[in-house]
Amino acid sequence: MLRARPTATLAAALAALARPRAVAVGAAVGVAPAPSRALAQVPDNHCWKCNHYDPTSTFFCKNASCSVILPTPDPAPNFFDLLQLDLPGAPFTPGGPAASSQAGGDANAGTDADAQASPRHAAILRHGFTVSAPTVKRAFLSLQQRLHPDNFSTKSDQERTISETSSMLVNRAYQTLRDPLSRAMYILDLHGITVPETPSAADRDVLLHVVQALEEIEDADLHADPDAIKDLVASNARRIEGEHRVIADAFARNEPEVARDAIVRLKYWRNIAAAADEKLGVSSDA
């Protein structure tokens, strides 16, 4: 089930919140043989203002007398690292191989491949889907509290620009990871797998069910019977939960193709839910 580990993730999130200032702790956790790779990233980990060097710096310079906002590496780290989310068996480590996997564009293919083989990256692929929406939200709010451009209205143009860029990126990471469907799509994307654009008549039973459900919603007379689609909505919600479990299991077993098929079905169930919400006059943002 999606929230099978609520206490674990809660504890992990709190640990994450407590950690950002604890410099070298991440290295001590020993997720991967990081040091040599961290050195390879030197040019990107120098503070643009005070030139302080710290491979574990994220978002802000760790020189206490400077503490200036730092630009997010381009291309940006993956959204799980960006939001500094802890995963089962693979907590977020600032400056770790996965965290800096795409940093700097130093054209070092070996670095990228190593990062993708890291336990952290494997954990993202296998367990990233199981992060809970509250965990993602907490991580987002904590970062946004520090990065939001409102904090930089009296600072230099450069700092304001950095804050706008980082804040926007963190926002996009949050929007992507908070929702199970887009989160699953994102992980599928990290696997290098896409959902086909072309039509499919493959699973006729699924399509038949979808069309019937959508027709039932369309034809329902809620004035005559306010509960006309109540059962349909309830059973569809169970289908959605069931698909979440299938996706979580498939990713955990490293079977992204199985996850992809479930994601396609999930899209159909979500469309049914959206049609029902629209019919009932429920905001889909709720």
Binding site: S200, A201, L207, N271
Partner: peptide, 14 residues
């Protein structure tokens, strides 16, 4: 009866 779906967007057509 023809039934098809678009996996990428979840559209269905009968």
């Amino acid at each position: 009866t023809g039934l098809v779906g678009a996996p990428a967007c979840g559209d269905v057509m009968k």
